[in-house]
Structures are given as C-alpha cells and as structure tokens.
Computed example of a mutant assay.
Amino acid sequence: MTALLVAAGAAIGAPLRYLTDRLIQSRHDSVFPWGTFGVNLAGSALLGFLVALPADHAVMALAGTGFCGALTTYSTFSYETLRLAEDGARLAAAANVVVSIAGGLGAGACGVLLARAVGG
C-alpha cells in the first residue's frame, strides 16, 4: 500500500514539476535555471511543513516521499549547474549552487515554522 501512495504522489508531482519549470523558465530570459530553483524551493518548503506536523505514515508516503520527491529535482539541479559551468557561465553555476542550497534549507525551515505556527 505504501508503494502505491508514493507512486500516486509522484504521478502528480512529476508533471507539475515539468509544467511549473517550463512556465517559470519561459518568463525569464537568462541562463539561470529559475524553473528548477523555483520548484526545489516550493518542494523544500512543503516538505518542511509536512515533517513538522504530527506523523501520519500515509500522508508522508503520498505527499512527502511521492509528491515532494517528484516535484523537487536534484538531478536536474546538478545537470543545469554542470551545463552552466561548461558553457562558461561559471558565476551563474556557483550562484546556482549557493542559492539553491541556502534557499532550500531556508524554505524547509520556513515550512517547519509555518506548520508550528498553524498547528499550535
């Protein structure tokens, strides 16, 4: 049953990641991967929120592992960073690493704080 919940969450998260990435990236005329950055921050915030709530195995399988796991993308982040460096945009590559890691940690912390604020 857990595997089905993870798969169901991923079936929603993966297409949403792709569509959101394309929508965000189409609005920016720069080499910086704003789409991947945006979905990774959103997924980090949501996962932070979920882990701060009282544990429910089914919700975490569906929303945490499945949805957030498919929404966020470390592989695309890595690929885009490498592509930037290979294309000579070393400053953008370094910025992507720094702001993605700091932003992801910050977004996760904000999610935790929000869950604590609304959950009492």
Rank of each mutant, 00 (worst) to 15 (best):
V99F: 08
F67A: 00
S44F: 06
L50V: 03
L47R: 09
R90D: 05
L41F: 02
A95T: 12
A117Y: 02
L84Y: 08
G48A: 01
L50H: 08
I12G: 03
D29E: 14
A102N: 08
D87I: 05
L5D: 07
T73E: 01
A61Y: 01
A85E: 08
R17D: 03
A55G: 10
A95S: 12
D21K: 08
G108P: 12
L105N: 05
G13M: 05
T72K: 00
F67N: 04
N40H: 08
G43N: 03
G48S: 09
F32W: 02
A70N: 03
S30Q: 10
L16G: 04
H28V: 13
V112D: 05
A10D: 08
L23G: 04
L50N: 01
L82E: 10
A92N: 13
D21S: 14
T81E: 02
A14M: 10
A42M: 14
Q25H: 05
I101K: 11
T36N: 02
G108C: 13
L71M: 11
L41K: 00
G88T: 07
T76I: 08
G108Y: 01
E80L: 01
A55Q: 14
P15C: 06
V118I: 14
L5I: 03
Y18I: 01
N96M: 02
V59H: 08
A70K: 05
L41Y: 06
A7K: 01
T36H: 09
C68N: 07
Y79L: 15
H57Q: 14
M1Y: 13
S75F: 01
A61W: 02
L91V: 00
C110F: 15
S75P: 08
A52P: 09
G108W: 04
N40R: 04
G64F: 03
V6R: 13
L16A: 12
L16C: 15
G13F: 06
L50E: 06
S26R: 14
A45K: 06
G48V: 10
S78N: 12
A55L: 14
A102P: 09
G13E: 11
A3N: 12
G103H: 04
A94Y: 05
V6M: 12
A109M: 13
G48E: 10
I101R: 11
L46S: 06
S100F: 03
A58S: 15
S75K: 10
G88L: 07
R116G: 14
L82T: 09
D29Q: 15
G69D: 11
A55R: 15
C110A: 15
A92K: 10
